[in-house]
Design a protein around this nucleic acid. Sequence first.
DNA 1: TCCTCCCTGTTC
DNA 2: GAACAGGGAGGA
Length: 309
Amino acid sequence: MPELPEVETIARTLEPGVAGRAVLRVELPNPRSWEGPLSPADVLAGGPPRIAGVGRRGKLLLLRFAPLAGSEPALPEPATPGPAWAEWPEGPDAALSATPDAILGLAFHLRMTGRLQVRPRGEARPGAHTRLILHLDDGCALFFDDTRKFGRVRAISPATLAAWPFWQHLGPEPLLVGEADFIRAFQSRAGSIKALLLDQRVLAGVGNIYADESLFRAGLHPAAPARGLGPGRLALLRRCLVDVLEESIAACGSSIRDYRDANGDAGAFQNDFRVYGRAGQACRNCGAPLAKAKIAGRSTVFCPVCQQA
DNA sequence: TCCTCCCTGTTC
DNA sequence: GAACAGGGAGGA
């Protein structure tokens, strides 16, 4: 279940193997994993695109193409080094002023079980769960595998990004949003605090794991109406969410069962979970047994003593 | 605003 | 052999 820290880790580990490579051929063993108005053929229509880098926006992993020779730069270079578009002040939307039909790259949503991995020459045969293969000019191939077929990939251009509601409605990055904007976003909507944390229009990149972990750290009951929370408690939630996301990124993410980074390595943050997956076990803070309930349509683990509405 | 569906491997 | 996991689309 790649959430923000896992996608960030995949982006960072994937970049060395693909940056500077050209995509010679796109193989699509499972067409249902491809979505959007642009086809794989559109990606190659202007000649083999060259991969400039790997980024992230929310839970989307972005394979960024270099501009074609002779055309306007489709995307500006990130203002800060590193693969994350999230750390890019003006964001990829700055490219909307560029050629509207230029292929900017590919956007992957890994959902539950999606994996990205570069395989060396000779190992480029699709497996049972391979959904997409990008054949690169060094003989290697980038594999998109996804056992549960929930993951999706699409080609993006300025025009299709502008017409993609999910992209247009994505909320701010949790690691970048300021305290005042965070508080405003949560106070302006109805619903439980957990439902809002999971809503990608409020914040981009938080899933079930980091919602539960940040709520525990902030001492907030997941079913608490967000509107009833004062600015102080929301400010604390933001601090706890930033902490847990940064700790997880430092640990290369959480591996429940499926998640691996682009090198095939597991993360380590699952060892630091305080509530997720620990229903019935003792609260690390007070010793009470952790409760489990379905909140916002997701299984939710929390401490009924430490977390209050 | 909440429910169902999509998927399949794992667990009960 | 059923329940469960879960992000987002789409419908009630």
